[in-house]
Design a protein around this nucleic acid. Structure first.
Length: 288
DNA sequence: ACCCAGGGTCGTC
DNA sequence: GACGACCCTGGG
């Protein structure tokens, strides 16, 4: 493999901070010069903004350009998506302006499953640390500009870890869940490649729910961030909070149940609920 | 020192 | 369908 450069001239909807810090991914880190470096399935990439250009520099299988186009969802037009959402109401107009550079990344299915199992009742700095540690322990080395990085481990590689060893990586009570799910995937109780062929989002979700540590919220994050189902609406504490604040006004937030929010999201955002959720989430988190 | 919350899920009732 | 427990870490 060799290091390559790829430049995007005047891309629409592309802000590094918006993309990498809206909670969808855990392996991108800002550098001193303002660029971001991340490890994805295909390799390691540095992304930098230079004027109105985006400069990618990376070490990727099957070439950098292909990896970038796929991962950053460049065939999708987010200006159009934002226009549609902004028409809905003033909140969507504001949040799509605030997070105008967001794109939904097309992340690896296996990595997304494990990452969001780890996310349960956890905070982002710690999630990132845990994923980094299991990559260092069980992933493969990959080099960029003379520095060593580590890919996310394959199911085979991660299956070498015992529950105790996973615990030592900082997973806490999620150790068993990752352990069991790894085995289920490895033994093809759930075949990830076949999963990608299922069209019906509902059926797909039901398959994901069979995995240990995957409930409704985690399943919907997997559907949105790895399987590109823009109609699903993952509900976490922040989304519950912001939806209640904007649309429901219930003083006791505990009373705002999931069913109510899902109906509201579907009715308001229709087949773009997932993207709407991401603008709202980023907006709420950055402004509170 | 103490308490609380964090991109929830699971087992139990 | 509700309810509490759950590893661990950073911040008040």
């Amino acid at each position: 493999m060799e290091e390559q450069e790829y430049i995007l001239e005047k891309p629409e909807s592309f802000e590094l901070k918006h993309i990498f810090e809206c909670g969808q991914c855990f392996r991108w880190n800002e550098q001193q010069d303002g660029s971001y470096i991340g490890v994805i399935k295909q390799g390691v990439i540095q992304v930098q903004k230079q004027g109105d250009k985006i400069v990618f520099y990376g070490n990727c299988r099957n070439g950098l350009k292909n990896a970038v186009n796929d991962y950053f969802d460049l065939d999708n037009n987010y200006d159009k998506i934002k226009q549609k959402l902004a028409k809905i109401d003033v909140f969507m107009r504001n949040s799509t302006t605030f997070g105008a550079g967001i794109r939904i990344l097309h992340q690896d299915l296996w990595e997304t499953i494990i990452s969001f199992i780890i996310s349960a009742n956890n905070n982002i700095p710690r999630i990132k640390k845990i994923i980094e540690r299991i990559s260092q322990e069980y992933g493969e080395k990959i080099e960029l500009k003379g520095k060593i990085y580590h890919t996310f481990p394959t199911p085979e590689a991660l299956s070498k870890a015992t529950i105790a060893e996973l615990r030592a990586c900082g997973l806490g009570f999620r150790d068993k869940r990752v352990f069991h799910t790894t085995r289920m995937v490895l033994e093809k109780e759930i075949d990830l490649e076949q999963l990608k062929c299922i069209n019906d989002s509902e059926k797909l979700r039901n398959e994901l729910l069979k995995l240990d540590g995957v409930g409704r919220k985690v399943a919907d994050c997997i559907l949105l961030f790895a399987l590109k189902r823009f109609d699903v609406f993952p509900i976490d504490v922040w989304v519950r909070r912001v939806m209640n604040e904007l649309y429901i006004h219930e003083s006791n937030e505990e009373k705002v149940n999931q069913k109510m929010l899902l109906e509201l999201a579907n009715q308001k955002f229709f087949n773009l609920a997932g993207v709407a959720q991401q603008y709202l989430y980023y907006w709420k988190r950055e402004t509170s």
